[in-house]
């Protein structure tokens, strides 16, 4: 099995959108964006496509921020990565601007109560830490350690670019036990946990708890 790594480009857009939607489900049937905005998966894919076209760095929906693992020349897995705050603005703020610009304004404003609920379980990301999101391995390529290799590739590339990377962080749903175990095995520990005692949150997210895990690098 020959594994190579490269940054995502326009030709990978469909693969990256698949990765985002599958990772968003986090082992459930709920895509939080669809639940929050009351839109279909196809409508979400159109919005994601427009956002990825913007190529706006410093947040998770930046196309070249995704590294693709190719197995024997075929895209098999991907992870998005960025240094929080590197564009001088919190990733959540950049993402807000992108969604505001590319989502129907009426849809967006109707979703404010749902967004407030989701915001209540959000954990602030740490400035300067390498953030990873949307970890995805295509069917047939799972269990081969590609995700761990992709995290290492993000670290290696950032350091090669002269960035000081001292820790890696990942945000997970508390219900995603297989992913939590996999990160623990890779040296991550849980550093923050946020739970919302409102049953309405489980209609928007796959569970009521978000956790932040991190790995300190040497």
């Amino acid at each position: 099995m020959s594994v190579t790594f490269r940054r995502a480009n326009a030709a990978d857009k469909d693969f990256v959108i698949k990765a985002i939607t599958e990772a968003e489900k986090s082992g459930s049937d709920t895509i939080s964006y669809c639940a929050v905005f009351s839109i279909t998966e196809d409508e979400l894919k159109v919005i994601l496509g427009k956002i990825l076209d913007e190529e706006m760095g410093g947040q998770e929906l930046y196309l070249p921020g995704f590294i693709i693992a190719e197995v024997d020349g075929v895209p098999a897995a991907t992870i998005s990565g960025w240094i929080e705050g590197e564009e001088g603005m919190a990733s959540s703020m950049i993402k807000s601007n992108l969604f505001m610009y590319h989502t129907d304004r009426e849809v967006l404003m109707k979703a404010v109560p749902q967004m407030k609920l989701v915001n209540a379980v959000n954990i602030d990301r740490e400035q300067g830490a390498l953030q990873i999101e949307y970890v995805y391995s295509a069917e047939g390529y799972r269990g081969r350690g590609l995700a761990a290799q992709l995290v290492d590739e993000h670290i290696r590339r950032n350091r090669e670019e002269g960035k000081q990377v001292e820790k890696v962080q990942v945000m997970l749903m508390g219900s995603n036990a297989p992913a939590i175990r996999a990160y623990e095995k890779a040296g991550f520990i849980t550093v923050k946990e946020k739970k919302l005692d409102d049953p309405a949150i489980t209609k928007l997210l796959s569970c009521d708890t978000k956790i932040l895990m991190e790995r300190i690098l040497n």
Binding site: N97, L98, M109, N119
Partner: peptide
């Protein structure tokens, strides 16, 4: 925060009858 930011920008645009471009907001 990021959510309030979105509502603020929308309210400001509506109040002044203007539209910001994405790159302007950024």
């Amino acid at each position: 925060d990021s959510l309030t930011h979105m509502i603020l920008m929308d309210s400001i645009e509506k109040h002044f009858y203007i539209k910001f471009k994405l790159m302007e907001i950024m």
